[in-house]
Design a protein around this nucleic acid. Structure first.
Lengths: 336, 336
DNA sequence: CTGAAAGCGCTTACAG
DNA sequence: CTGAAAGCGCTTACAG
């Protein structure tokens, strides 16, 4: 037998489908008697409401689309997890898509989410706001950007302050006597990549440190580019005494390269990472990092989507980032 | 204006909705002329098919539910990522849920997935197969278990051989002269936890090593229990000279504790981890691990769901696990 | 409080 | 090849 429908429940309870619907969706206008009959009939039959049918009728799916660059990145995994849990607590489902740092795949995902008629989307955007993203926005679908934004695209967002942490990191290193600080930058097609690099440049200049452009290596937010960045920087005629990376995966790559070269972190090379990822705890000494809060970002993004759906005004949020001092930095030229 | 429907397209193209539907779903019986008119009308209007309506009518959603214990666990993130990408390549969406290692939450997620009428589910199950899981199965919904299984529940699954890797690891350590091998076990309410522990016990006995039950600490697949396990084992009057952990997060915990105690891995304590997680590369020397293939598991699981949907027979798959020798083990009592 | 009826946006036999 | 019509499983004004 097929999954029972509301009709089957109505028949068994001896009431109309309208009454069944009202009882099941907790509409106030129902008598205790029918409530009773319906509930027990539904239980007997093992009735499972069909969300598809309900959505079609209500023109609302109770589903939110989540588009991240890659769940395998711990930072985004944390966001995805929190979004899912928060949504679940409001009886909403989440449709997860990975853009894999590809604009083409991002478009594909957006199309899918639109077809699924998600009520809103939480996205870590990339690219210039053309393609499917533009279409989605013109549809008036509630969208919240998380972590990243797109210039010229007016969408509520929850991001981190990409400046303070970097500035604190540079000042801290300057205080330790470092004059040449290597920087593994994020891709300049992302807002986070751009803002963090700008902050680095500004802080380096303000502190009167070496502004040699060779100290900046542009990576792509993947670990391999962290490795490549570390190699390039350490191969300079006058290599940096400290290295800063613009996200967790690239930090990871830098650390891998240090391990391969047998460099003692904090002594041979000072390293400051980005994102307070649990696995950085494996490094010895513990890594000094620029921390922000992906979990809070995810939770806030869901709140914002819910506000948008409720027609309430929302304002973008910028969370703080800050330097968490641990043991991976030391005086310049320590034991070299 | 609302999102255009098939009616709007029909009106603009000057054909019936039936024809529009046929063209859009690539039904063979359509003339080139109407195809042309429909396609351009759809494009003009920016028509987006409503997956909800289609699903209701077709009684098929083209969506597959994915229930993992926790996406923040790199092992499951990898599975989730592959499942999503593979599904996407077949134009299917994935609904992701995290059970957070809680049977209650697992039930909640299953209910949600049923209501969403996913075509099938890929789940990393836990518990005894009662509750919502039993209901779901009695519904006849295609389900594939991944990584874990449940005793007495007949569901096609793709798992790893939980025995070989462990046996190889124990033999390897025995060959290095270790007599007392500590084991941080997974929760015994999971099939993987049970099978791996059984393999450890068998291998230890076969190699004639110390079978002291105190050498086994039962963790819960979270990093904190790896820390606790390492502490408990190292606090024994006669502590083990090598430690093996039953999953990535607990391995992680063991490594954290080693770092905190300043133990030199491979010299002061031999360590073998489970899962070939990228972040284990941060450890020095590189970690010897028992590796299996989450990505392949995810891809296979999708194939199996598709076969089930197509009414084809499927057989469970057991992938291999094996020891990957790197540098984290050394002779027993090395430099103690 | 309750029921009959219309309709959400599609698909698909059934005729032609 | 094409159209009219029924129907997927719900919800919700509209009467009563």
């Amino acid at each position: 037998m097929q999954t029972p429908t509301i009709r089957d429940v109505a028949a068994r309870a001896g009431v109309s489908v309208a009454t069944v619907s009202r009882v099941l969706s907790e509409h106030p206008s129902t008598s205790a008697a029918s409530r009773q009959k319906v509930l027990s009939a539904a239980a007997d039959l093992g009735f499972r409401p069909n969300a598809q049918a309900r959505s079609l009728r209500r023109t609302r799916t109770n589903t939110i689309g989540v588009l991240v660059s890659d769940v395998r990145n711990p930072f985004f995994a944390e966001i995805a997890h929190t979004v899912e849990q928060t949504a679940l607590s409001h009886e909403m489902a989440t449709l997860l898509c990975n853009a894999d740092e590809s604009t083409e795949q991002q478009d594909h995902c957006l199309d899918l989410l639109v077809s699924q008629r998600v009520d809103g989307m939480i996205v870590t955007p990339q690219g210039d706001g053309s393609g499917s993203l533009r279409e989605v926005l013109s549809l008036g679908l509630p969208v919240v950007f998380v972590d990243r934004t797109i210039d010229g695209v007016e969408v509520p967002s929850v991001t981190s302050d990409n400046r303070t942490g970097i500035v604190e990191a540079v000042q801290h290193l300057a205080g330790l006597g470092h004059r040449r600080i290597g920087y593994v930058a994020g891709p300049q097609v992302t807002s986070t990549g751009r803002e963090r690099l700008a902050a680095y440049r500004e802080a380096v200049a303000d502190a009167g440190l070496d502004t040699d452009p060779g100290l900046v290596f542009e990576g792509d937010f993947r670990s391999a580019s962290g490795v490549a960045g570390a190699r390039a920087l350490l191969a300079l005629p006058d290599p940096p005494t400290a290295v800063l990376a613009a996200d967790s995966l690239m930090t990871f790559g830098v650390l891998l390269e240090c391990r391969d070269r047998g460099l003692r972190i904090g002594a041979d090379l000072s390293v400051i990472g980005y994102d307070d990822i649990e696995s950085f705890g494996l490094v010895s000494p513990p890594l000094t990092v620029i921390a922000h809060d992906p979990s809070r970002m995810g939770a806030l993004a869901v709140d914002m989507i819910r506000d948008l759906l409720a027609g309430e005004p929302v304002t973008s949020a910028v969370l703080t980032s800050s330097l968490v001092l641990r043991g991976s930095t030391g005086p310049a030229g320590g034991t070299r």
